[in-house]
Design a protein around this nucleic acid. Structure first.
Length: 204
DNA sequence: CGCTCGATATTCT
DNA sequence: GAATATCGAGCGA
């Protein structure tokens, strides 16, 4: 039985991978003495990033020390430090037609280890635990040491498992970028309250 | 509720 | 020096 989406899953155009990741489960394992603590959430919001075809991508300028995972094997964690305060986590993915790419995980619905998330986040409100790319890395204790971890292996301390089927998925413009705004490469389930704040869909 | 701003790594100019 | 795939505190309405 396969627990995790395999290498083939990530060997497709990043927009397709980003869409299909909505509903999957992001799982973090922390060592705590003899036992292992499991923290996990359902992915409810993602963004796809490309290579030279995408002005918003870190990979648009070629490989650097920071973005090298985007050019390596697919299905691995690309973790970087943003704005000097927050980590963001992606999974590397790309089709054979390009040389780099990744999918940013923007929000989770907490499902396992919620009390641990509360402690790591210093926040009691479950709606605020992982509803943003910087928040979810803090809630799952994801730091630079996770960079390059294989997300297709259920035995690693950071990986992606099959989850649930989303009620709905919509594609919209990406958030917080100045270039590449025409692409509708942000994917989210608008029926959940756990998407990042800027991504809330206005209901009227 | 919405707006401004500080924190400050990485990369580019 | 400036921009960036962010967040939360502080302030005013």
């Amino acid at each position: 039985m396969t627990e995790c989406p395999d290498r083939q899953f990530y060997s497709r155009p990043t927009a397709a991978v980003a869409r299909d990741l909505v509903g999957m489960k992001l799982v973090r394992t922390l060592e705590s003495g003899a036992a292992n603590l499991r923290i996990a959430g359902i992915i409810v919001e993602t963004e796809a990033y490309g290579h030279t075809n995408d002005g918003a991508s870190h990979a648009r300028i070629g490989a650097t020390k920071r973005n090298s995972v985007m050019f390596g094997a697919v299905g691995r964690a690309y973790v970087y430090f943003a704005y000097g305060n927050h980590y963001c986590v992606n999974v590397s993915a790309r089709s054979r037609e390009v040389n780099a790419g990744a999918v940013l995980i923007r929000a989770l619905e907490p499902v396992e280890g919620i009390e641990i998330m509360r402690k790591l986040r210093h926040n009691e409100n479950v709606l605020s635990l992982a509803s943003g790319p910087g928040k979810l890395t803090q809630a799952l204790n994801i730091t630079g040491s996770c960079n390059g971890v294989d997300m297709t292996d259920p035995d690693t301390d950071l990986h992606i498992e099959y989850g649930s089927t989303p009620r709905q998925i919509i594609a919209t413009q990406r958030i917080g970028i100045a270039r590449g705004t025409a692409k509708k490469w942000r994917f989210l389930d608008p029926t959940t309250s756990y998407v990042s704040k800027k991504a809330q869909i206005k209901v009227r």
